[in-house]
Amino acid sequence: MVSLPEELQAREAAARQRVEELQAEAAELAVRLERARAALSRLEITRETVMEVLADLSAAEVEAHDAPDPRETPAPHGIGVMAVPPWREGLVAGVLPDVYRDIVEIVADAPGPLQAKQIVPRIGLEATTAKIEGTRGKLKRLVERGWLDEDTPGRFTLARHEGDAGHVNSR
């Protein structure tokens, strides 16, 4: 039979070992936390810098007079590039990324306003909630950039610009 002092010493040794293990685990977590904070800080700085650059590019784009004809040069796709340019006189749907161009053409060909859930199958996607919400985000972006209108919530039509009727499918 084990004596009470021996049992207490054994429990104390086990508790001491558990404390040492938890201290080592806490130190490891502190290192991981510091790395995660550093990564977050870099991402925040990157996002702020990208937003500044995009704002500068948007301002420069408005001021540029000798830019190439947008009807001839599609917008480049890549990191740091505005994939969906704001609509302006003479710009055609051909400058949009494929899925956005398809959406604009589908909305242009529709007899009336369309909802995201009606557009999803027409662009070849399965009508799941995720695909509908993703398409709704694209529709909202097209509204923000002046390609589409949303006269009533969730119902999208082609934006009508002065003297622009019939130019959606032009290249």
Rank of each mutant, 00 (worst) to 15 (best):
M1I: 11
G80E: 04
L22K: 06
L142T: 03
A26P: 00
L33Q: 15
P68I: 01
A116K: 00
P153F: 09
V81C: 06
G137C: 05
V143C: 05
W147N: 01
D151S: 10
A127S: 15
R88M: 11
E162C: 04
T129D: 13
E12R: 12
V143K: 05
I119P: 02
V81R: 10
Y100N: 15
R35V: 10
E44L: 12
G146M: 02
E126L: 09
P113D: 05
D69T: 01
E144Q: 12
G163M: 03
E6N: 11
A38R: 14
A27L: 12
L148Y: 00
G112P: 00
P68D: 07
H65M: 10
E21N: 11
L8V: 12
A159T: 02
D66N: 14
R32Y: 01
R32S: 08
A93V: 04
L4G: 04
I119A: 00
A24T: 12
G90S: 07
T135I: 03
D69G: 00
E28R: 15
A130M: 09
M51E: 15
R88Q: 14
E89V: 09
G134A: 10
A108C: 10
V104W: 02
P153Y: 14
R71K: 11
R42N: 11
E105V: 11
L22D: 00
E72K: 12
R11I: 03
Y100C: 15
S41E: 14
R11A: 08
R155K: 14
R32K: 14
A127I: 09
P74E: 04
V143I: 02
R122P: 03
R136L: 05
K117Y: 11
K138L: 13
E133K: 13
Q17I: 03
H77I: 14
T157S: 08
G163D: 07
V120K: 04
V2T: 13
Q118K: 07
H65R: 14
D151G: 12
A24C: 04
G124Y: 00
E28D: 11
G124A: 02
E20S: 11
A13G: 06
F156R: 01
D151C: 04
R155M: 07
E133Q: 15
K140P: 01
A36L: 15
P85Q: 07
E12I: 10
R160N: 11
I123F: 11
G90H: 06
L57A: 09
H161R: 03
G124D: 00
G124E: 02
A108R: 07
G154N: 07
T157H: 02
A93C: 05
S170P: 00
E7F: 11
G137Y: 03
R141W: 04
D66W: 09
D56I: 05
G94M: 04
V120Q: 03
T129Q: 13
R136Y: 06
E12N: 13
A55S: 14
R171M: 10
R42W: 09
G154T: 06
D98F: 11
A64M: 12
Q9I: 06
E133S: 14
Q115K: 13
E28G: 10
A67Y: 08
E133L: 13
E144V: 04
Q23C: 06
I45Q: 15
R155D: 06
M51I: 08
R71Q: 14
E28P: 00
A36I: 10
P86F: 07
V120H: 01
P113L: 05
P153I: 08
L57Q: 13
A27M: 09
L4N: 06
M1Y: 08
A30T: 11
L4V: 10
D164V: 03
